[in-house]
Measured scan of single mutants.
Amino acid sequence: MDSLVVLVLCLSCLLLLSLWRQSSGRGKLPPGPTPLPVIGNILQIGIKDISKSLTNLSKVYGPVFTLYFGLKPIVVLHGYEAVKEALIDLGEEFSGRGIFPLAERANRGFGIVFSNGKKWKEIRRFSLMTLRNFGMGKRSIEDRVQEEARCLVEELRKTKASPCDPTFILGCAPCNVICSIIFHKRFDYKDQQFLNLMEKLNENIKILSSPWIQICNNFSPIIDYFPGTHNKLLKNVAFMKSYILEKVKEHQESMDMNNPQDFIDCFLMKMEKEKHNQPSEFTIESLENTAVDLFGAGTETTSTTLRYALLLLLKHPEVTAKVQEEIERVIGRNRSPCMQDRSHMPYTDAVVHEVQRYIDLLPTSLPHAVTCDIKFRNYLIPKGTTILISLTSVLHDNKEFPNPEMFDPHHFLDEGGNFKKSKYFMPFSAGKRICVGEALAGMELFLFLTSILQNFNLKSLVDPKNLDTTPVVNGFASVPPFYQLCFIPV
């Protein structure tokens, strides 16, 4: 009986604490739906499609509103004006990374994606500088992407125009580009180590996009005490870190300090320079996690976009025909596509942009946080508050993009057929937390897609009208449904 009384008292205290925290903070924060004790607004949000729920709530509470995930307040920004004001106009104040408990377990605050403060700034600055020195957006990395595009075309030829699921092959190409940047090595598509790495990356994007992960991140005790797919994700990350550590040891034994070959060499050189400046942010643990982040951000996002792009091109054969006509006119058949071609191919450029806009790969991006107490639109948001960005509300804005739910390359073309930029184009987020590999991803999408369409016609196994382009999961990332196609050599 005594234990029951204690339990009831504990629960009562928890409920009172929950109510007090919510009521004391709500006077400062933007308005929002009334949260339930302990669980907050979790029942009012469709976990399978958070973005749709945010759109519905914005119609009631406006472009800036507050939700509670458990006891934790989260300020939501919906629509271009609110997102721009926060991420661009007040970029420094909104540059923090929001709480992501599962990532905390995986990387302990290291790396480039989930770190904060001085650690994040130094690692991000170093990573950007190193990638630029190796030619991100310049010639040397373009050579690597072109080489991988040629290998991709050869792998597709091996399908002999038979029906195939493109998931694996389209994942190999961007993964190999990242391998060449980090390890100075590309792998054969049949290499077992490479296959294991690909498998872990593919599993992780599916797990991260599941409703279960949303629950884990908002009720963090689940991570330590409950079984579930989150444990598989943590094991996959541990596998990748151990693999990278092996490569780091190989580099330490063979590195030429006067001739760095890749990202690992550059990081080890930085560690050597910083060894007298303790404590340094440049450690082996930081290198492991930064490399894992580059793999995660640079492989599955690009391969998922490529997979979605081919599905949309199957669905819209008239678009595919126009792209192939432009390829034939500008590039021809006797040389590989290059980035200089893009400025002469406005329709193809528009298609690449429209694919990214339409699929809305990361509907709410990753959570941000404010780095200080900030007054925002007459609300006071306390330091450390998590900020949720609705990228969907920007990419699918119906004023900027008429009929935003329709796939239409003319969203990025003017009346004369010239490519038209849009400030609403934010597939990689915006501001200080914009994806480090934005330029690389854009290069890969253009070169891989043009190389495929230069060499193959795409054949659907069903009537294009019957192809479903609805994402199968739409949590962290929008993942396309399973499909097969035939690559018919031109």
Rank of each mutant, 00 (worst) to 15 (best):
S3F: 12
V5Y: 14
V6Q: 11
L9V: 13
C10D: 00
L14F: 11
L14A: 09
L14P: 03
L15W: 15
L19S: 04
G32D: 00
N41P: 01
N41I: 01
N41S: 06
L43C: 13
G46A: 09
K48P: 11
K48T: 15
L57G: 02
S58T: 07
S58C: 06
S58F: 03
V60D: 08
G70I: 02
L71S: 13
L71H: 07
V76G: 01
V76F: 08
V76N: 00
H78D: 06
G79M: 00
A82M: 08
G91V: 04
G91M: 05
S95E: 15
R97D: 08
G98A: 14
E104V: 10
R108H: 13
G109N: 08
G111F: 02
F114C: 14
F114E: 14
K121A: 10
R124L: 03
L131W: 05
R132E: 08
G135H: 14
S140P: 09
I141G: 02
E142S: 04
V145P: 00
V153T: 06
P163I: 06
P163Y: 05
F168Q: 15
F168A: 09
V177I: 12
C179R: 00
C179W: 05
I181Y: 10
I181G: 01
D188F: 04
D188N: 15
D191K: 02
D191H: 06
D191Y: 01
D191T: 03
L195W: 05
M198F: 14
K200G: 07
N202C: 07
E203M: 08
I207D: 03
I207Q: 06
I207Y: 08
S209M: 08
P211V: 10
P221Q: 09
P221E: 08
H230C: 07
K235G: 07
V237M: 15
V248M: 07
E250A: 07
D256N: 14
P260R: 10
D262P: 02
C266A: 15
F267D: 03
F267L: 03
L268A: 05
E274Y: 07
E274Q: 14
E274S: 13
H276C: 12
H276F: 13
F282K: 03
S286D: 14
N289A: 14
A291R: 00
V292T: 11
L294D: 01
G296K: 09
A297T: 06
S303N: 05
R307G: 03
L311D: 00
L313D: 01
H316L: 03
V323T: 08
R329Q: 14
R329N: 15
V330C: 09
C338T: 13
D341M: 06
V351L: 06
D360A: 13
T364A: 09
L366V: 12
L366P: 03
V370H: 04
N378A: 04
L380C: 15
L388C: 08
I389T: 10
L391G: 12
N398E: 13
F412L: 01
E415W: 06
N418R: 10
F419D: 02
K421M: 12
K421G: 14
K423I: 13
M426W: 08
S429A: 10
A441R: 02
G442T: 05
N455I: 04
N455G: 04
L458Q: 00
V462N: 07
S478G: 08
V479L: 15
Y483H: 02
Q484C: 10
I488Q: 14
